[in-house]
Design a protein around this nucleic acid. Sequence first.
DNA 1: GAGCACTGC
Length: 707
Amino acid sequence: MADRSSSLPDLPILQFEEKIAETVEKNPVVVIIGETGSGKSTQLSQILHRRGYTKSGIVGVTQPRRVAAVSVARRVAQELGVKLGEEVGYAIRFEDRTSERTRIKYLTDGVLLRESLSNPEFNEYSVIILDEAHERSLNTDILLGLMKRLVKIRSSNLRILITSATLDGNKVSKFFSDCPVLNVPGKLYPVEIVYSRERPTSYLESSLRTALKIHVQEPEGDVLIFMTGQDDIDKLVSKLEDEVRSLEEGSCMDAIVLPLHGSLPPESQVRVFTPPPPNCRRFIVATNIAETSLTVDGVVYVIDSGYVKQRGYNPSTGMYSLDVVQVSKVQADQRAGRAGRTRPGKCYRLYPSIVYQDELPDVTVPEIQRSSLAGSVLYLKSLDLSDIDILRFDFLDSPSHDSLEDALKQLYLIDAIDEDGSITSIGRTMAELPLEPSLSRTLMEANEYGCLPQALTIAAVLSAETSLLPGRSKGTEKKRRHGPDLPDGSGLGDHIQLLQIYEEWDRNDYDIGWCKENNLQVRGMLFVKDVRKQLCQIMQKTVKGTLDVRTSKSRKERRDDYRNLRKALCAGYANQLAERMTLHNGYRTIGFKSQLVQVHPSSVLGTDEQGMYPDFVVYHELVTTSRPFMRNVSAVDMKWVVPILGKLEKVNVNKLSSGGYSQIEEGNDGKIAILPKEDVSPDNVLPANESRIQAARERFLARKAKK
DNA sequence: GAGCACTGC
């Protein structure tokens, strides 16, 4: 650590100061290829500060992660000898440490996007640096598109710098009309790459063998092993411990084996930062959290399985999945680089070099092509950029036609856009909220029914849900369902249970000990509390009265609230409703493309005397694991569903995507072309779908007659 | 009766 700060004047980037300043002076957009250790994150802002760019405005630097924004800002303040929060500051969610004097501002890309809602031309900034753009977060990609538009408007007084990786620097340059690309070398030690001769039959076994070989044959230095997930990590940790223990005493040095992944409690994560005792080698078995988010010192050997777990989204079915996929070359190189931070290292790739060359994709599929875009589309529509339409929006990598259509249909169903694709006043309010559109819509509907305080809690919990409820051990899962302490949703469903849990925590004065007793993740619960507070502050502007959690009520009043909440969820999740099959507990989703799905076994949704689930449910998420499941499910009334069926019949996707102008069409090159409005066929209204919805309506009437 | 890579507003 001390080494790094004393070597500060040698940072490679400083030798390029003149060149960088000159290029920025002459060009509105510059791409900087800065390898690890080049010092770009801390130095670019200071170079521009020295060259006077902070006189006419703020130099803003985005980071994809909160911790990075904070630590880099702290570092720069220290180097400039100023107090953090004054000339140099940072802004992340829940925490704004800037002042009127701030000239260099580090912020997460999400925060910069939010800022553009109130100031779409970023007028207070003289320079915007999009750092780590090669990570291609959804937010960075949207910002890249906005910046491309902005350079045309503010070419005289705005400078944009984009830092990227070697493999896609030219692509970014091309996107910005062939802007200059500057290469700044990094400060990594050489890393020798060792490939396997063959593909492993089991990369778990192969990692184990390689790790032991290193331990026996190689000089001291820690080993970082990249695996895909918790399961494999736990297995490898225990096998490795066994094998190391069985080695002959004194034949080699001691060893400690540590797991490292996101769902470990923070105190366990910290263990990887404490240096090992002397004559002891550490094996750190990690997910890709160790690829960028956490840096472990002392690593000299890296073992790369070549795989990563990656979230996917299928826009035509609305289904999420988590798949094990091959890493990209960028990722493989990033992993290898983890071995060369302190001295020359070695990286063992558990696959042949031909696989690296011929099979691995150059770069990871950007998040924008793997996510639901409802939120991003609504956000862009709310910016009211008169000169662009969402479907003309120029992305570095366009999302698919299906994905944009999926987003538009979803937004239409929840009244955020009208049938022509124009944003509604409801949509405008929704865009103000830092939530997925369905949750924003639920809040607005709940406000009409007088249950906003409860809906705020549900929205906050759902936006953090994965890290909230007990982990995967069987005992704790049982507790969720039958535990004496935790509420059960009164049979109405998971949304109601989540509300009840939070209210119970409130009654226990937000006690941390209470969370631990009930196996609730402390970090997650505290996050929920912060989110709820933030949502209250935003909603307070449009709402009269108190939004406190504590609203002492009678049993009858609570029952009414639960009913109204489920009704509000029905409006917010109009395209996430499902109808039960007549004879068993399977469901089919109601929507543009019906899917056969099941209630996730962890649900607390109740059944009737015959053991049957409710006729209609609203769900928060569809996930495909072993089978397609609905996660977080609550019962809804069929009479709330009927008006939505009517709306589904009316959707005309061509009109929606026209945005009032024209029709979209996907060309052979995958790019989206705009056709003149006259070419829109008037009767292209999803005929097959219509008959299916008609059938659903008939089934509904039959049910009604039976009752 | 199944299981959660990593971020972020």
